[in-house]
């Protein structure tokens, strides 16, 4: 259904007359702010993935587990599962934040490289496969399961991961692919 998009103040949404879905959302354009958030997230990503999320005390040994280990240990026995876990929990979020950082940087510093449309296009794809919030709930489920078998402690990585998740959610809710395309095409 063809609809006319009126000029709206920031924060308003235009909806389709036929199905009532949002077709246009006027959000504030703040590439510098998003760039700052992305850089913060990219710094946090390293300890969040590398430091132990949880450590368990079992059979007299204390063992620590980080986010990458779980996926990498399954590469031999179940490569498809390992790839899916790696992609949705590590690769997609990292690339998503990097691509938003890159496009925000381009707009902040008024720099228009030829690959900018490709970045905008892949951001839309990565957004669907980035599942940090699902990982958080999975971690809680796993924690309750493990508590049956062993003593469990949260590691430093866990707190970094929560911070990363919050930053990731703020970035995604403030980023608008449509708006970035509009700015790119207008300049």
């Amino acid at each position: 259904m063809v609809s006319h998009t009126p000029n709206m103040p920031t924060g308003y949404e235009a909806k389709c007359t036929r199905c009532n879905s949002v077709i246009y959302k006027k959000s504030c354009f703040d590439p510098a702010g998003l760039l700052a958030l992305c850089i913060a997230a990219l710094i946090i990503i390293i300890p969040a993935f590398y430091f132990p999320l949880i450590s368990i005390h079992l059979l007299g040994i204390t063992e620590e587990t980080n986010l990458l280990q779980g996926a990498l240990m399954m590469v031999d026995s179940a490569p498809v599962v390992a790839f899916m876990v790696l992609f949705c929990a590590v690769i997609a979020p990292t690339l998503l934040i990097s691509s938003i950082a890159l496009s925000s940087a381009c707009f902040t510093f008024n720099y228009h490289p030829r690959y900018l449309p490709d970045i905008l296009k892949s951001t839309g794809f990565l957004k669907r496969w980035s599942m940090l919030e699902v990982y958080m709930v999975s971690l809680m489920v796993a924690v309750f399961k493990i508590m049956n078998y062993a003593d469990l402690y949260f590691g430093i990585g866990f707190y970094f991961f929560i911070t990363l998740l919050l930053l990731d959610l703020i970035i995604i809710s403030n980023y608008s692919n449509q708006l970035y395309w509009e700015k790119y095409l207008n300049e």
Binding site: L58, G70, M73, M131
Partner: peptide
């Protein structure tokens, strides 16, 4: 996307319980 939950749980359990023949 929430059906991926179980896969993430498996990946965490596999990493945590890695004690050879004991557990």
């Amino acid at each position: 996307k929430w059906s991926v939950l179980d896969l993430f749980v498996i990946s965490i359990m596999v990493a945590v319980f890695d004690k050879g023949h004991l557990l």
